[in-house]
Structure formats: structure tokens, C-alpha cells
């Protein structure tokens, strides 16, 4: 039961109603056990997965799906690794067949070095997936006009990159993120670029609806401790945003009364 002073709505993504605004990836962990623990500690209710060819040479041991409790988490498949609309659409269809979910995180990338989203392919794939009744969460650049086009195409959420995937640079252009929030009426989730807890808090303080991250937890020296840090940062940033921060001012504003100080204590 949430205390009254901490009340907050849910983040609604298609059929998913999320209390936690942290979305967490499942890549790069040392083991499936560590993945499971990190997800649990992070408090997330929505986790991303990727679609890849079955390894036919390896013996069929446990798989990631054995470690992700679908009663507890909404599973959000991505189209990572796709560099054109057609393969992203095929990947989304394959993921839906395994998971029986309408959710998809659409990624259509431009090139391998930057992993920046290709806007033309992204918009094309988004339109097709919306037509196929997917709930499409779109990884995109922090370009406000691109986000408007995506929203008009009927996507469920825009997910602008704070900075390049896995770069740990945080949100490089907070003003662009704020403009996106003004221009679209759908959830805005900062996806990619988070390096540490303060990046998550800063993003949430902008008023975004959520943050999606993976590497910042999985590749931290102590992933489980970082998972805790991210949970706290997400909640801290959200509450700070909802609280309404004080305006920034150039000069000081004393917290203690200036009157009634003892003789000789005032300014010279």
C-alpha cells in the first residue's frame, strides 16, 4: 500500500500497467541467476529481451525464459540488430509468436558503430507494426519532430535515446527531451545512454514517464548493488519531479531567519 504522500499513477503501455517506471534489459549479465536477481532488486515490472537464432550446436540447456517470471514481469521483445524496416517487422512477428504479447520495442539501427536509430526505417516499420496491432515502443533519437511523426503513426510510446546505446553518457540534451514531452501525448521513456544512478534521477526529474536501461546495471562492477541504486534513483527522480522543484536562482536565499541574530552577528 503506497503512502498518501507518495501516490502516483501507473505507467500504461498497451495492456501493461506498471508501478515501477524502470524498464530493464536482460543482456550482458554474467549468468541467468544474476539476471534474475538484478531484475528482482531493480523493482522493474517490464524487461526487454532480444530475438536470435537458436544455437543448434549447443545442447539445449536452460534458457533466459526459465529465469524470467512472466507472472511478475511484462516481457518486451526488441528488434535490436535490425538495420532495415523489413527485418525489424519480421523480428517483431517472431517475438510475438513466442511470447504472445502485443508489446514490441522497435529498433531500426543506422550503422554498427553509432547504433543510432535510422529515422526513415524506424517510421516505416512503426507504421506497419501499428497496422498489425502491435503496441509499439519506439527507440528513436531525441528529435522532437521525429517523435511527433511516431506519435501520429499511432505508436504506444516514444523512447528517445539519452545518448548512444551503452555509452554511459546520460541524457545529453535534456531540452530536447522536455520539448518532446510537450509535443506528444504518449509516454516518453528515456532509453539508452544511462551510466549511473544520477542519470536516471536526472531523466526522471525532467518528467519523463520512465527510463529503460541495461548496460548500466549489467556491466557495473557490482550489478546487484547498481540495480538497487537504479531503483532508488528512479523513484527519487520521479518524486522530485512530482514534488515541483524550486526555481534556480543566481543569489542565495537564507533558510534561517535574518532577524533576531545576536549583537555584532549581522553583516558589516
Amino acid at each position: 500500500m503506497t503512502e498518501e504522500h507518495l501516490r502516483d499513477g501507473s505507467l500504461v503501455l498497451g495492456d501493461a500497467r506498471l508501478k515501477s517506471r524502470l524498464l530493464v534489459g536482460t543482456g550482458k549479465y554474467a549468468s541467468f541467476e544474476e539476471t534474475r536477481e538484478a531484475l528482482e532488486i531493480s523493482g522493474t515490472e517490464c524487461v526487454t529481451v532480444a530475438v536470435r537464432r537458436v544455437n543448434l550446436d549447443a545442447s539445449q540447456g536452460p534458457s533466459l525464459l526459465d529465469f524470467v517470471d512472466r507472472e511478475r514481469y511484462h516481457v518486451l521483445p526488441n528488434t535490436a540488430g535490425c538495420f532495415d524496416a523489413a527485418s525489424a517487422i519480421r523480428t517483431a512477428e517472431l517475438a510475438r509468436d513466442v511470447l504472445d504479447t502485443r508489446l514490441v520495442k522497435l529498433e531500426v539501427l543506422g550503422d554498427e558503430k553509432t547504433l543510432l536509430p535510422d529515422p526513415v526505417g524506424t517510421l516505416e516499420a512503426a507504421r506497419e507494426l501499428v497496422a498489425q496491432e502491435f503496441d509499439v515502443l519506439v527507440y528513436c533519437s531525441d528529435d522532437p519532430r521525429m517523435c511527433v511523426h511516431l506519435a501520429e503513426a499511432g505508436v504506444t510510446s516514444v523512447m528517445p535515446a539519452g545518448s548512444p546505446i551503452g555509452s554511459g553518457q546520460g541524457v545529453l540534451n535534456p531540452n530536447a527531451i522536455r520539448i518532446i514531452q510537450e509535443l506528444v501525448d504518449i509516454p516518453v521513456i528515456v532509453d539508452a545512454g544511462v551510466g549511473t544512478a544520477s542519470d536516471v534521477a536526472a531523466a526522471m526529474e525532467l518528467g519523463v514517464d520512465g527510463v529503460l536501461l541495461n548496460t548500466a546495471i549489467a556491466s557495473a562492477r557490482e550489478p546487484l548493488r547498481m540495480a538497487e541504486a537504479m531503483k532508488l534513483a528512479c523513484a527519487a527522480g520521479r518524486h522530485a519531479y512530482l514534488s515541483g522543484r524550486i526555481p534556480r536562482k543566481l543569489y542565495a536565499n537564507a533558510s534561517s531567519p535574518l532577524e533576531g541574530t545576536i549583537d555584532g552577528a549581522g553583516p558589516n
Binding site: T26, G27, R53, G166
Partner: peptide, 10 residues
């Protein structure tokens, strides 16, 4: 034929 499954990813 393509046979795929779900793996860790972000």
C-alpha cells in the same frame, strides 16, 4: 528456415 528464440538484450 529460421529458428529463433529469446535471449538477453536491452
Amino acid at each position: 528456415l529460421e529458428l529463433v528464440t529469446l535471449v538477453g538484450g536491452g
